[in-house]
Design a protein around this nucleic acid. Structure first.
Lengths: 218, 218
DNA sequence: TAGATTGTTAATCGATTAACAATC
DNA sequence: TAGATTGTTAATCGATTAACAATC
């Protein structure tokens, strides 16, 4: 099953704790308890402490954690001290939305270039520039890019992924609704909005039905 | 912890099987084996059969499954026989990308209206129309909408969610990078692109480092 | 029949949670 | 000290996988 979709959610949770801590800091908090973080992120306080202990983060018994210090440690673990340069393939609606999205840059993730097959979309002066697919391989090599985002149509995704990997990309976030065949040392993650919606719709319908059967609605 | 993010991934997998089957059908397949589906989706064949057995789907020992029949059954389970109408709050870059995205309509999911606070974005004649936030509540009630997508900025997300829920929405897909406080009978799912990227970046860096330490690169 | 595939029961694995000891 | 919180070990839970029986 390769190394696609790692079931290790603690990193995602660490990021969430970090985001919550930023908000706490804005509110003037100096220290927090695991309970505060738990409430904010929607997990239990044991989960929080367990996650921390995994990385040797410790607080003060009875005194919780110092916000500043904790943010520092989390940033360190998450590699937030250096900007991560990524490339994006596919300057369609979604791809464009991603390049315009401020949230990534705020997190130290920078889309340094887009690539598209459509000549009318190419714009070398833009920020980030949109370049031709032909330049993808060279660009990745030259700039030692390790992360690629794929937001091209389903039928082009595999080819793009292969080009990225052959140029040295080690992690791909794929928005195309298809499983990619990867190579040994490249991690492939998926975001599939349709699937999420279908899943949500299923469970909403399921609970609605079970409620009706129980006579919840007349 | 309410009922947010249900850990029941079998529905997502059923959708993936269904998508794979459509491709198989296009290729002229009449029957498939659990192994074919497994390869296509990236799971094991046992997983496929286990998932099917969960819903009483059975094939022919030695003969696999009939593609047509299987698609039929999956569509039935997934509620694909009727169009699902959803509303979308936040006509920013991401929201707009979603309304323009063909993949949803193909799956029987229809965004029937967008809502935005910015008057300059309002366009009642568009398809889907973009309406004022003031009309959100009424629209949901009148059209008995059960599903809402939130792609507004972080600080507006909670308020929008509450308005949706009070109007009768039972499922929310939230793109804002913040945990929403929901009510008992509403399911809240999350798509957080930053988090996915941060997670990916972490594991890429982690494996790169461990490789270096093992002398994988000189 | 022999071989391949399905379907299910039992075992395993990993992640979460409960219980509790440590200590500020 | 008493009370609250952290940190960890053990128990639980759920999901995946292995093993194998059923059967086409």
């Amino acid at each position: 099953m390769n190394n696609s979709n790692l079931g290790k959610n603690y990193i995602i949770r660490l990021s969430e704790y970090k985001n919550a801590l930023s908000r706490f800091k804005t509110l003037g908090f100096v220290k927090v308890f695991s309970d505060n973080l738990a409430d904010s992120v929607g997990v239990t306080s044991v989960q929080v402490r367990k996650d921390f202990s995994l990385f040797g983060i410790s607080g003060n018994r009875r005194g919780g954690y110092l916000v500043e210090e904790l943010i520092e440690k989390l940033n360190d673990i998450l590699g937030k001290n250096e900007v991560q340069n990524v490339v994006l393939a596919g300057a369609g609606h979604l791809g464009t939305a991603l390049t315009k999205y401020k949230g990534l840059e705020k997190e130290g993730i920078k889309i340094v270039a887009c690539f598209d097959i459509d000549p009318s979309k190419i714009d070398k002066k833009a920020n980030p520039p949109t370049l031709s697919f032909d330049e993808l391989f060279e660009f990745i090599k030259k700039n030692a890019i390790k992360i690629g985002i794929i937001s091209v149509p389903e039928n082009a995704a595999q080819e793009v992924a292969e080009k990225m990997m052959s140029a040295g990309v080690k992690g791909i976030l794929n928005f195309a609704p298809i499983k990619l065949r990867g190579i040994e040392d490249c991690i492939i993650s998926y975001v599939n909005i349709e699937l999420e919606l279908e899943n949500l719709i299923y469970f909403v319908n399921a609970t609605q039905k079970s409620k009706k059967n129980k006579g919840g609605v007349k």
